[in-house]
């Protein structure tokens, strides 16, 4: 088995993980039970969005034969591959916002998530999907969390 076939086999689990994380986002953005309705889970909504972006990249690096086990290692790869230069800044904004959420308890408005962070997620996703396509792998899920994120707008209006 050559490296390409080996890597291709290894990416499937990440494809499933992307879809699994989207389901978590679905859970986090749906109407909460009454005892939770005043809770603000925008920190974990944003973090889940970041993790999906992260898994897209992890899948890509798996395709390249790299097994990424830390955010630091992922960044190292990001800065050394020319085809990924375009996503460095969008990815870093997602990452730092997620760190603020996890470590500093920062919460985010629906406007910030939808209009500033979602477009950056999309840049990362589209870049990875395109690179998979160039490697003749077309079954990568192109998930779109926007309809789920729009629920936050509806919630803030009501």
């Amino acid at each position: 088995m050559n490296e390409y076939d080996f890597s291709r086999g290894g990416v499937e689990k990440y494809f499933r993980l992307i879809e699994h994380d989207l389901k978590l986002l679905d859970l986090l953005t749906e109407k909460y039970s009454s005892h939770l309705e005043k809770e603000d889970f925008s920190d974990w909504i944003l973090t889940t969005l970041f993790y999906i972006a992260c898994i897209y990249l992890k899948a890509l690096f798996r395709l390249y034969g790299e097994d990424i086990q830390s955010h630091y290692a992922l960044k190292q790869q990001l800065y050394t591959r020319k085809e990924l230069f375009q996503i460095i800044k969008p990815y870093r904004h997602l990452e730092e916002a997620s760190r603020d959420a996890r470590y500093e308890g920062r919460v985010f408005s629906s406007d910030y998530i939808i209009n500033r962070l979602y477009p950056k997620f999309k840049i990362v996703r589209d870049c990875v999907v395109e690179l998979f396509s160039k490697n003749r792998i077309f079954n990568i899920p192109q998930v779109d969390p926007l309809p789920l994120l729009k629920r936050l707008e509806e919630r803030s209006i009501s």
Binding site: Y72, Y79, I88, E96
Partner: peptide
């Protein structure tokens, strides 16, 4: 990005927090 090139021999992590 510039810092990654300039300090390529240093393990550093840039943390931008609000």
């Amino acid at each position: 990005v510039e810092m990654r090139k300039k300090f390529k021999n240093i393990n550093f992590d840039l943390r931008v927090c609000v």
